[in-house]
Simulated scan of single mutants.
Amino acid sequence: MADQVIVDKIIQALAEYLKRDAGTIKAAHHLRDDLGLDSMAVIELLYKIEETFDLQIPDQDLVGLATVGSVASYVEGRLAPAKPAAKKTAKPATVKSTKKRKA
């Protein structure tokens, strides 16, 4: 489940757009079937979410965003800092002298 702060912001954006009480919108609600959003309304909502979270949602990602919860999980994944690749620590090269010591 996505971070509750993200879910709450998305629900608030939906409530403002739909002009209804945020308490009536749940993470499990389907954007089209339960909330009655048509294609244009979904795009407008996602634009508002892009502004709210300062991110861009590529068109190819829209297909998987069907419920309030799926939108929240997507946003959370996009906001999570990229995990840095594990750094391999190189051992310093040891220099062996090829010169022979004089006794």
Rank of each mutant, 00 (worst) to 15 (best):
A2W: 00
A2V: 06
A2H: 07
A2C: 04
D3K: 08
Q4N: 08
V5F: 11
V7L: 10
V7S: 02
D8N: 13
D8G: 10
I10M: 03
I11T: 12
Q12S: 15
Q12K: 13
A13C: 11
A13N: 10
A15H: 09
E16G: 14
E16V: 04
L18P: 05
L18N: 03
L18V: 13
L18K: 13
K19T: 13
R20D: 04
R20G: 02
R20Y: 03
D21S: 15
A22Y: 02
T24H: 05
T24P: 02
I25R: 00
I25G: 00
A28F: 04
H29N: 14
H30L: 12
L31I: 10
L31Q: 00
L31K: 00
R32P: 04
D33K: 01
D33T: 11
D33L: 01
D33V: 09
D33P: 00
D34F: 03
L35V: 02
G36L: 07
G36N: 06
L37G: 03
L37S: 05
L37D: 02
L37F: 05
L37C: 01
D38L: 11
S39L: 03
M40Q: 05
M40S: 10
M40R: 02
A41H: 12
I43Y: 07
E44W: 09
K48L: 14
K48E: 14
K48G: 06
I49V: 15
E50L: 00
E51T: 15
T52C: 09
T52I: 15
D54G: 06
L55W: 06
L55V: 15
Q56L: 12
Q56P: 04
Q56V: 15
Q56D: 13
I57N: 05
P58Y: 11
P58G: 09
D59V: 14
D59I: 14
D59H: 11
Q60Y: 13
Q60C: 10
D61I: 10
D61W: 10
G64D: 06
G64Y: 09
G64P: 05
L65C: 10
L65H: 11
A66T: 15
T67S: 13
T67E: 03
V68R: 05
G69W: 04
G69T: 04
S70N: 11
V71P: 01
V71L: 02
V71N: 01
A72D: 01
S73I: 12
S73L: 12
Y74M: 06
Y74C: 00
Y74T: 02
Y74R: 02
V75A: 00
V75I: 04
E76Q: 03
E76S: 06
G77R: 04
G77M: 03
R78G: 06
R78N: 09
R78K: 15
L79Y: 07
L79H: 09
L79I: 14
A80Y: 07
P81A: 15
A82D: 09
K83M: 10
P84M: 12
P84S: 14
A85Q: 10
A86Y: 05
K87M: 10
K87W: 04
K88L: 15
K88W: 09
K88A: 15
T89L: 10
T89G: 04
A90E: 11
A90P: 05
A90N: 07
A90F: 14
K91I: 15
P92G: 07
A93R: 12
T94Q: 11
T94Y: 08
V95L: 13
V95A: 10
V95S: 07
S97R: 09
S97E: 08
S97T: 14
T98C: 06
K99Q: 08
K99F: 15
